[in-house]
Amino acid sequence: MAPNLADYKTDVHNDWCPGCGDFGILNTIRMSLAEMGLERHNAAIFSGIGCSGKTAHFVNVTGIHTLHGRVLPFAQGAALANPAIRVIAVGGDGDGLGIGAGHFVAAGRRNVNMAYIIFDNGVYGLTKGQASPTLKLGTKTKSLAAPNVNYNVNPLGLAVTSGFTFVARGYSYDVAHLKDLLKAAITHKGLAFVDVLSPCPTYNDVNTRDWYAGNDPGTEQKERHARIYKLEKDSDYDPVVHFSDPKEINTKISQALAKSLEWDSRIPIGVFYKNETITPYSGRIMDTIPNYLENPPAAQRIDHKAHSTSEISPLVDSLRV
């Protein structure tokens, strides 16, 4: 029997701060898994370090809570050894775009079948609010001694220029919209990236839920999510690469890059770029290992009655004097 939503919840106590945006992402992950009917043992959550890292313990599928910045290597290793597993990597923006930025770029180049979700809040929450890579230059959140002296990383722009083939942004308080993005990311053929704006109610007192809602201090509250708008409502924006044509790909990457630079008064969410014409890593492997998908590393039998069944004699015989 396919599991239901409650089956994807562990009884591990969730110690995130009340009002944390991460709750929205966590619930959305569970809902996406349930709606997709993924069997618990066939899905795995890999996480980095920080508040978001604990996500692996809150979802009742195999959960691998790795090291700071290293979530993508661990996740790719598992996804490549056993491509039958739906691998979802999660982590904070400091984890993925600071200490793990090298892995982020390299993962894009590989385009392994899996999804990567960044819980993007602009601060290092668990270490009491230092500036993280997505915080804008000159912004002073409450724990900072002085305004942020570093320019911000543009996660979506970095993703489209690094080879990610599905690049999207969600908002943690718009669960319905985020769920569609996550499901699309998980089923995408290639490496999918979803940057989720997730307000930290404790340490980021600038990009707050109210701020995203357009409810700036001293102004009247406008409509809900007023700063945020959905790309799919813009009929002129088509993120999908339809043909394997370099010109089209360049156009779509450029358009996504331009869109990723919009911020402040108008913040787009939705799918920025989607390209399934690029061969995923598994396909590239099959150029040299044709039966890779039907007999991947994790499926291979290596022994019979406790003895090796690998044929090394062709290799060894070629060395005979």
């Binding site: 890999f46 691998i64 790795t66 090291l67 290293r70 993508l72 290597p73 661990f74 996740a75 790719q76 290793g77 598992a78 996804a79 490549l80 050894a81 892995h103 590393p297 994790a298």
Partner: peptide, 8 residues
């Protein structure tokens, strides 16, 4: 990291 992920 990849080798560990694969070992799992």
């Amino acid at each position: 990291g990849m080798a560990i992920g694969s070992a799992l």
